[in-house]
Computed example of a mutant assay.
Amino acid sequence: MSRIEKRFARLGEEGRKAFVAYIMAGDPDPARSAALMVGLPEAGVDVIELGMPFTDPMADGPTIQLAGQRALEAGQTLAGTLSMVRDFRRHDDETPIVLMGYYNPIYARGVERFLSEAAEAGIDGLIVVDLPPEEDEELCLPARAHGIDFIRLATPTTDDERLPAVLANTSGFVYYVSITGITGAATAQSAEIGPEVERIRAASGLPVVVGFGIRTPEAAAEFAAIGDGCVVGSAIVAENASGKPVEEVLAFVRSLAEGTHRA
């Protein structure tokens, strides 16, 4: 079993939902983001989503766009992000890590080189938001061959005709985007999400985590209760950008994790 499978299996045995936390690698500088990442598991994070900074993040809202810009200005590279994961793995070989971002930096590095390095570093999954299922041979299938899960996004506009293509080569879990639009731009409505999560879970046989528009422990509990867990990104990135000490950012993360685990 992969780390992702093991984590969801353990949570299922414990009757708990998964708390997935997103941070941007290198934001606002490599040292601070590494310190934040190291503290996430103790703060209750079950799966870490690590953003790969990119110059043209078309699916992200201002909060994560600015985080990526800060990281790039601080010198963060894809090689540096993989090195960050290697350092993390020296003391934590259990917490799943999913890289999230765009295809261009991977393509520029070379798919085979990137996947070999990612697997060696300890990456468990990829979310690449600008590669549709029609391009699975480009990265998804090679990633699976390296033992790396390829996690797909499903959205409110993913109808029954489109869903089979979206799920065909998906593994690990499905990320349900609870709103249409860019990250951090709106607040989701839980009443509208339940039937969609059930539809996707039934079609995929995979855990479904809900993300976008979740900013508080109360919202985390509400949405985690509907799915198999929830994802918080922009709220954590904004807290980190506030200049507060890392310990205070981790305290905020812990409050979100506790909300999720109450679901």
Rank of each mutant, 00 (worst) to 15 (best):
residue 180 T to S: 07
residue 153 L to S: 05
residue 101 G to D: 02
residue 133 P to H: 03
residue 221 A to I: 08
residue 195 P to T: 06
residue 105 P to N: 04
residue 213 G to R: 03
residue 190 S to D: 15
residue 98 V to Q: 08
residue 119 A to T: 11
residue 141 L to C: 15
residue 220 A to K: 07
residue 110 G to R: 13
residue 191 A to R: 14
residue 144 R to H: 11
residue 166 V to R: 05
residue 123 I to R: 05
residue 116 S to R: 05
residue 146 H to M: 09
residue 100 M to V: 01
residue 221 A to S: 08
residue 144 R to E: 14
residue 193 I to N: 13
residue 163 L to P: 04
residue 207 P to M: 00
residue 173 F to N: 00
residue 214 I to M: 13
residue 153 L to D: 04
residue 218 E to S: 14
residue 191 A to S: 08
residue 201 R to M: 05
residue 187 T to I: 13
residue 116 S to K: 13
residue 188 A to W: 04
residue 171 S to A: 12
residue 119 A to E: 12
residue 100 M to Y: 00
residue 151 I to A: 00
residue 177 V to F: 00
residue 172 G to I: 12
residue 136 D to H: 06
residue 211 G to P: 01
residue 223 F to P: 14
residue 138 E to Y: 05
residue 133 P to E: 11
residue 189 Q to A: 05
residue 180 T to H: 05
residue 139 L to M: 07
residue 146 H to V: 14
residue 199 R to H: 03
residue 136 D to C: 10
residue 158 T to L: 07
residue 227 G to L: 02
residue 155 T to Y: 13
residue 132 P to A: 07
residue 105 P to H: 08
residue 204 S to Q: 03
residue 108 A to M: 09
residue 192 E to T: 14
residue 121 A to I: 06
residue 179 I to V: 13
residue 124 D to L: 04
residue 138 E to G: 15
residue 218 E to W: 10
residue 143 A to V: 11
residue 180 T to N: 10
residue 191 A to Q: 06
